[in-house]
Design a binder for these strands. Sequence first.
DNA 1: ACCACAAGATTGGATATCAATCAATAAGTT
DNA 2: AACTTATTGATTGATATCCAATCTTGTGGT
Lengths: 277, 277
Amino acid sequence: MSGRSQTIAETLTRAIIDHRLVPGCKLGERELAEIFDVSRIVVRQALIRLADDGLAQIERNRGAFVARPSMQEALEIYDALTLVEQGVAAQLSDRLGPAGWAELRHHVERQRQAVAAGNDALADVLGQEFHTVFVRLSRNKVMQEIHAQLVRRTTLLRSLITADFDYCNLLDDHSRVVDLLEKGRLKQAMDLIDTHHRTVVRGYIMDREVFPELTPAEALAPYLDGKAEGATTAVPLARPAKAPGDAATHLHIHLPKKDPAPASRASTKKTNRGLQS
Amino acid sequence: MSGRSQTIAETLTRAIIDHRLVPGCKLGERELAEIFDVSRIVVRQALIRLADDGLAQIERNRGAFVARPSMQEALEIYDALTLVEQGVAAQLSDRLGPAGWAELRHHVERQRQAVAAGNDALADVLGQEFHTVFVRLSRNKVMQEIHAQLVRRTTLLRSLITADFDYCNLLDDHSRVVDLLEKGRLKQAMDLIDTHHRTVVRGYIMDREVFPELTPAEALAPYLDGKAEGATTAVPLARPAKAPGDAATHLHIHLPKKDPAPASRASTKKTNRGLQS
DNA sequence: ACCACAAGATTGGATATCAATCAATAAGTT
DNA sequence: AACTTATTGATTGATATCCAATCTTGTGGT
């Protein structure tokens, strides 16, 4: 693409949405420059991109930090997300052809199979992807980018909450939305989208104080395999979930810190599956 | 705020939405560095911000240019804008209190008076501002920023078209939208918003070849009055339309070039008033 | 315990320099 | 003359070094 700062911004974005860099984490210029083996200026350009995206905030003479959205901002992000997806739903109910409906159904089916097979990691990814596919079918790249940015920001919020109730009732929402839309029941579909997001955000209890985390060097290590491939698409596209074992333990590092009990991993998985769908 | 690059990015943005820098215009790093009396690095950071905002595009090893949206992108931008404003309309019809309706009516009334007084410049500004006020009443800053970005990008499109039919029938749309919304006729209001934007974009005939323009130095000169005040808000807020004579002749420099007749200024004004409302 | 001041660290920015790439001209060939 | 190729020039991407302003921290005195 455009240069190293773009690549670095994408890597940092990936690390943030993978919850390896949590809100509030300091993103020091010198530190990142050493990690990525570039000059401070390139890092700064990457940080500017992140800040424009809402994923980082730069405080003058204090440096850049992973953004720590307030509860108010969380509500606004989900409000905006609801607005966008409702609007797209309205467009699709008019304009979507059979191939589009088939793609949505196929996606839902894949997620259902993943759930049935107990592959929680895959179900997580597919659950997130559904929203992306949904918006992509609007064939509006501008809208896609807006939506993708909002989704990225919601992943920030998931590091800031303690969710301990059951989200399983949300798992079928995707399927029901497709059903309602294809049957032309637009109003009901829009209400369901609204409820879907409202149920998620209602579970948000933000305790924004303590967040122990990995150092940036540890967090970013998995993305820096081969420097030769770093310039291509290999590193940004590599999902740490594919790395067996290692990534899984780090993925929700903030929860083990809050709840020292090692048995918390299974329940964490379940909770996050609901959150991401 | 954050530093000089932020200020420079805002100045460039202002120059672009004032049509002093037109799509395709080269934004050379060295040139801008001399104009703003900063180093190339700061300029590049500003250009990155502009590119992230969709107002500039950076081509590797070729430099930055004011973005030249395609017809497809123009349609997508207006589609997204329609979606956002329809969604906000739906929210406002539920949640907006009497004070909000009063503010909308007051704004429409101010625009009506400006039109009646023949103050086309003020009517232009108020016509644009209505959409901004409308979205602001949603009390969602995230949505506001998304909408503001879309609006900025539509101003780019206005440099790329030749509009020679009458837009006067759109001048009352704002008032009618407020009326319909306050009466609870949401569906009709949303349809009117859709029609409003569709009518605008339907007049777009993009002839994207020839665009003679001011040099960046000439275009940016009005924003660089006092360097002492440059860091504050004085310069970015100064609208060149307030500068008597000089700015008006430059404002739509692309039209005089296409139509050498010097009498074109009055008709140009009228056309743009419709476009911006 | 509390405040003031000094030292250190970090950011924001400037300057100079270098390599890589693109554009445009000049040269040579058919 | 037209076309292709090579050289030159200009611009960008990036680095290293340096400096000023600001923030943080730690120390010392009251």
